[in-house]
Structure formats: structure tokens, C-alpha cells
């Protein structure tokens, strides 16, 4: 049930520009959009890293020790550094766009955007602290 791109009465002389394959490099805002979308790659990579952690823990203390050594190599540190930047970018864009996607109403009045954004950041802070405390508990 596609509407199709009808251009009737399409005048043969009217000029239609083709979109370049490099359209996303033409303006910074498009590039930023594509970078935002590519954060998902790092999200997925880190999910795989988490899998690896679990696997190593399951194999036993030696495997866990090897994992720690492996994580300390420059390659992994750099990879994690890059991933961290992208994941942060993901978090920030995700929180900032949240009020657009979700309108919160309280007694009929629309909550201002900053309230929605603010509560996202607050939740982020609380959850991060909780994870850190639980994970690093001795």
C-alpha cells in the first residue's frame, strides 16, 4: 500500500537532484545524526564484552585473571575508550530527545521538557552509583 512517489503531472523538464551517497557528510547535523546512530554499534560491542565477562567467570578464577590481563592491554583500553565516548554520546542524545518522544502530562498540563530530561539524568546518576556500589563491594 505504498503511496509511491507520484509526480504527476511530472514535467519532463523539471529537475530532480539525486541524493548523494555521501549526503550524511554534507552538513554537520547530518553527520552528527549518523554518528548518533552508529553509537548502537558500540552498544552492541559492549553487550558482547559483557557476555565475554560472564563466560570467563563461568570458566573459573584462572579465566577471570586472564580476562583482567587481556583488558589491560593497550588495544582493549583504546577500544574501551572509544566505546565509552560513543556510549556517553548515546546516553546524552537519548535523554535529551526523550521529552520529544514521550509527553508527560500531570493534571492535564504538559510537563516542561527540562523536567523530563532532568529526571532522566537523575535516574542515570542514581543507577550508576548503585551499580558501582554493588559491583565494587568487597
Amino acid at each position: 500500500m505504498s503511496l509511491g512517489a507520484h509526480y504527476t503531472p511530472y514535467h519532463p523538464k523539471w529537475y530532480r537532484r539525486r541524493v548523494s551517497v555521501w549526503w550524511w557528510l554534507q552538513t554537520w547535523s547530518y553527520t552528527r545524526f549518523v554518528l548518533r546512530e552508529l553509537t548502537s554499534v558500540f552498544v552492541a560491542l559492549f553487550a558482547v564484552v559483557l557476555l565475554w565477562h560472564i563466560w570467563a567467570l563461568e570458566l573459573g578464577p584462572e579465566a577471570y585473571a586472564r580476562l583482567l590481563v587481556r583488558l589491560g592491554t593497550p588495544l582493549f583500553v583504546v577500544l574501551h575508550g572509544v566505546a565509552f565516548v560513543f556510549v556517553l554520546f548515546h546516553s546524552i542524545t537519548w535523554f535529551n530527545l526523550a521529552p520529544k518522544a514521550m509527553v508527560v502530562r500531570l493534571r492535564g498540563k504538559r510537563m516542561p521538557d527540562w523536567v523530563v530530561v532532568g529526571s532522566n539524568y537523575a535516574a542515570w546518576l542514581v543507577l550508576s552509583l548503585a551499580v558501582a556500589v554493588i559491583l565494587l563491594r568487597r
Binding site: L71, A83, F84, H90, S128, V131, L136
Partner: peptide, 25 residues
């Protein structure tokens, strides 16, 4: 992922390997 990945990634991928904090036992 937006809420939880940054902290996990920071701790296990950067802070621990770089020795800023000790790894959990």
C-alpha cells in the same frame, strides 16, 4: 543501555584495567 552502559563500561573497561580502582575479587 543509556542508563547502565556508561558506568559498566567505565568501571570494567577503563577504571579497572588502568588501575584506578582494584578489580573485584
Amino acid at each position: 543501555s543509556a542508563l547502565l552502559f556508561p558506568v559498566h563500561l567505565f568501571l570494567t573497561g577503563l577504571a579497572i584495567p588502568l588501575g584506578w580502582i582494584d578489580p573485584p575479587r
